[in-house]
């Protein structure tokens, strides 16, 4: 089986600033990988590249062995058409730091919007599935309310249900608890632990919650200056880092 995500010689520059330089890594099907590192080390950019929210400066990203935004044809790097990109992107879901729920729609409409209008599912079918997902995140009784009436933690749980409603193969979690009050973090992480245990969705996780990273991920990658400093099993990296910089970083977040 090909890796579900493969980064090949990926370079990302914003103007003159190089955020990622010559990055290579694989994510195996069902694998959950946590990206750690100081801010500005390029972790979030990796997630945004996979979600095609940023333009890939150089290199290739392969999803399930297929090109995401750029393909190699006869040795040339070719940009894919919007349509082709959109087809691949349907398998990828993302949960954002600031939730990004649609404030003009009720909770349930947030969850059914994409299944109905992207996957073409029937309204009833989408609604039933959405209610099941909202039940899973403990918010079934809030289905008809507007997001503005929910707490941050509840909003983030709706956002998780919204991402799951698309049945993604890959889920990207971008600092999903960073904008929450400390007492609300536990609920959200609990829901995600549950998702991790009950599905085989591959995940790329950016977080500062080291205990969560230890519990749910198969692999931890430490980033610094746009490159992988070290990677390995969570227990190894988080308890016995081989690099001084990793140790310093872990001391600063724990």
């Amino acid at each position: 089986m090909p890796p579900v995500i493969r980064f090949e010689d990926v370079v990302k520059r914003f103007g003159d600033t190089t955020v990622l330089s010559d990055l290579n890594f694989d994510v195996a099907p069902g694998e959950r990988v946590t990206l750690i590192g100081p801010s500005g080390s390029g972790k979030t950019t990796i997630l945004r590249l996979v979600m095609t929210l940023e333009h890939l400066t150089e290199g290739y990203i392969w999803i399930d062995g297929k090109p995401l935004t750029h393909d190699r044809r006869d040795g040339n790097r070719v940009q894919l058409k919007q349509k082709e990109v959109a087809e691949t992107r349907k398998q990828i879901g993302m949960v954002f730091q600031h939730f990004n729920l649609f404030p003009n729609m009720s909770v349930i409409d947030n969850v059914t919007e994409a299944p109905v209008h992207v996957l073409g599912r029937g309204k009833e079918e989408a609604r039933e599935r959405a209610l099941a997902l909202l039940d899973q995140v403990g918010l079934k009784d809030r289905a008809d309310e507007h997001p503005s009436r929910l707490s941050g933690g509840q909003k983030q749980r709706v956002a998780i249900a919204r991402a799951l409603a698309m049945d993604p193969k890959i889920l990207l979690l971008d600092e999903v608890t960073s904008a929450l009050d400390p007492e609300l973090v536990g609920d959200v992480l609990g829901v995600l632990r549950d998702v991790a245990e009950s599905t085989d969705i591959s995940m790329l996780i950016v977080t500062h919650e080291m205990q969560f990273a230890r519990d749910v991920s198969h692999k931890v990658m430490m980033f610094d200056g746009g490159q992988i400093l070290e990677q390995g099993a969570p227990a190894d990296i988080l308890s016995n880092p081989s690099h001084d910089r990793t140790r310093k970083f872990l001391d600063s977040v724990l």
């Binding site: 929210l53 992107r89 879901g93 993302m94 649609f102 003009n104 209008h117 992207v118 990207l172």
Partner: peptide, 25 residues
């Protein structure tokens, strides 16, 4: 900007993103 990004993350087509999300807001 997060609204556009969320719409893209859900693969909503451009037209739908304008009609259902951006223009109402």
């Amino acid at each position: 900007r997060g609204q556009w990004e969320a719409a893209r993350a859900l693969s909503l087509p451009q037209g739908r993103t304008w009609r259902a999300i951006v223009l109402p807001q």
